[in-house]
Amino acid sequence: MRFKIYRFNPETDKKPYIQEYKLDKIEPGMMLLDALKKIKEQDPSLGFRRSCGEGVCGSDGLNINGTNGLACITPLADLKSPVEINPLPGLPVIRDLIIDMDQFYKQYRYVKPYLTRKAPLPEVELKQSPEERDKLDGLYECVLCACCSTSCPSFWWNPDKFLGPAALLQAGRFLQDSRDQTQAERLEALDGPFKLFRCHTIMNCVQVCPKELNPTQAIGEIKKMMLKRTI
């Protein structure tokens, strides 16, 4: 199986280039991350991030044959050879397949991804009914791999102003949380032409999410909440 991999080392290369690799032994059930590890044995200079290897940590988000996804849960059998592997688009490259996620985390931080309360915290835990807890399903599972935000054209054009699907999904997650008490402030922080409203329901985020979450729907729910508040 052949692989065409994006290479760039800012210390030695003037321009990025594509390097070809070949793997002869492909075992059944092998994932793309396994292939990358084998390639790294051939060429230790190849840089990529990985950690858990089972789709939980979200470290190995890559652009694989044109679609963003996690290398560790992408079976080689599903990929067309040569497999073209690029870093996630839209963010600066540090080296090879490693991108600088600062902008992504900055947008994540903006939505205050933690419970905020006005009343003092009670001595006991904050309780939720099963129905209240159910509202968080499909929102809390995000692993922040950045596959969605880096597949979003609106995020490509305005990564500094548009929060992007990942951050907005988390904004939705805390807006839906019955224990959070700053819904009004959260919604106000999202108004304005850029933060939320650059979303044009392109839905690339939904297509690529390795956890099969739906940021577009979460964004729609936020818009509905805003609308309800103004009426």
Binding site: L190, D191, F197, K223, L227, T230
Partner: peptide, 11 residues
């Protein structure tokens, strides 16, 4: 309206 988000979207 150029500086807003929700109102133009509703309009």
């Amino acid at each position: 309206v150029a500086l807003e988000g929700l109102r133009p979207w509703i309009l």
